[in-house]
């Protein structure tokens, strides 16, 4: 397939996944902000979201203060913020538009309909209907797009590049969400009921709350949450599951130039496959997740070089 086509497909998947995970991240942050706490602590959490995406200075250029309203507006509906949900959905649609002939009609229509709908809403309208409802809508639209992708596309390279982009983005995003929330939760000194809600909200934001109950049948502890989201092979949003998918997709699209990228993906996968959570935590979770995100970034670089801008 054309390198440029593969590039658009890969990015269309990344932006779709990114919009969904942004909705997940903002939703959990919003839920947590409802737990009783000081305004200062609350605003600190919103500041952390900006820092997570390296957006502090862009934000400061347009907004006077960090608070829930401003950060939500900036991250949900601000067209000038390239990382907002609005911008991600626009980028997904633009990439799809460039290769709409490669997509099935249902896929294109799903992506296009999402964009048309988000474009028609102001942030005030979104707030009036309830911000959580909007986040649910974003997740639902992502699920619909994923559904028609798997349900209608031929299992050829086009689908493999879409899946590869989605998996890479998802792995990165899960790591980010976990890194940020873990950091906040470890800092909070009250060990009481509010922690339960916070860990619960984190699990819910990654659609892992019921799974946790099913797998552990026990109280929620930080170590188990980390184990579930990092090491469980059978949880679709875990780092391990993403790395596993990346290795398989790379095998399917391999070419003469991609051996090194495949090796790196294999290393990443092995590190997750054979890890124990105690060792991960002993070395520092933040350090572990940062290393993971760096490796994902490297993989993205390699994929670009080997397949997407090939000569």
């Amino acid at each position: 397939m054309l390198s440029r086509t593969a590039d658009h497909l890969y990015w269309l998947a990344r932006y779709t996944e990114r919009a969904e995970n942004l909705a997940r991240l903002l939703d959990v942050s919003y839920q947590m902000s409802l737990v009783p706490q000081s305004i200062a602590a609350q605003n600190e959490n919103w500041r952390a979201i900006l820092a997570l995406n390296s957006l502090e200075s862009a934000f400061a250029g347009s907004y006077p203060a960090v608070n829930v309203d401003n950060v939500l507006r900036f991250m949900v509906a601000d067209a000038t913020n390239p990382s907002s949900i609005y911008s991600c959905l626009r980028a997904a649609r633009e990439n799809a538009h460039a290769v709409r002939g490669t997509l099935t009609a249902e896929m294109w229509e799903s992506i296009n309909a999402t964009w048309i709908e988000v474009r028609q809403q102001t942030f005030e309208q979104i707030l009036a209907r309830g911000i959580s409802e909007f986040f649910d809508w974003v997740k639902l639209r992502s699920a619909v797009t994923r559904g028609v992708t798997f349900g209608t596309m031929l299992k050829d390279d086009a689908l493999h590049f879409i899946r590869l982009g989605g998996l890479l983005e998802r792995g990165d995003n899960t790591a980010r969400i976990l890194d940020m929330q873990y950091h906040i939760l470890r800092q909070s000194d009250d060990e009481g009921a509010s922690d339960f809600y916070r860990w619960g909200a984190l699990l819910r934001s990654l659609s892992a709350f019921q799974v946790y109950r099913k797998v552990y049948r026990d109280a929620i502890t930080p170590a188990r949450v980390a184990e579930l989201l990092i090491l469980r092979m059978d949880l679709p949003r875990s780092l391990h599951a993403c790395a596993d998918g990346i290795v398989r997709m790379l095998q399917l699209i391999a070419n003469d130039a991609s051996a090194e990228t495949q090796r790196q993906a294999g290393v990443l996968h092995a590190r997750l496959h054979f890890a124990r959570i105690d060792d991960v935590l002993a070395g520092g979770l933040h350090e572990y997740l940062t290393d993971f995100m760096d490796r994902i970034y490297e993989l993205g670089d390699g994929i670009s070089r080997d397949f997407l801008i090939a000569a």
Binding site: R4, T5, D157, F161, N255, A310
Partner: peptide, 19 residues
């Protein structure tokens, strides 16, 4: 469906860049 940047000419022959 190709754009100009997807094609190149070598030895008076046209090629497209693929994965």
């Amino acid at each position: 469906l190709v754009e100009g940047r997807d094609l190149f000419v070598r030895d008076e022959t046209v090629f497209m860049r693929t994965t």
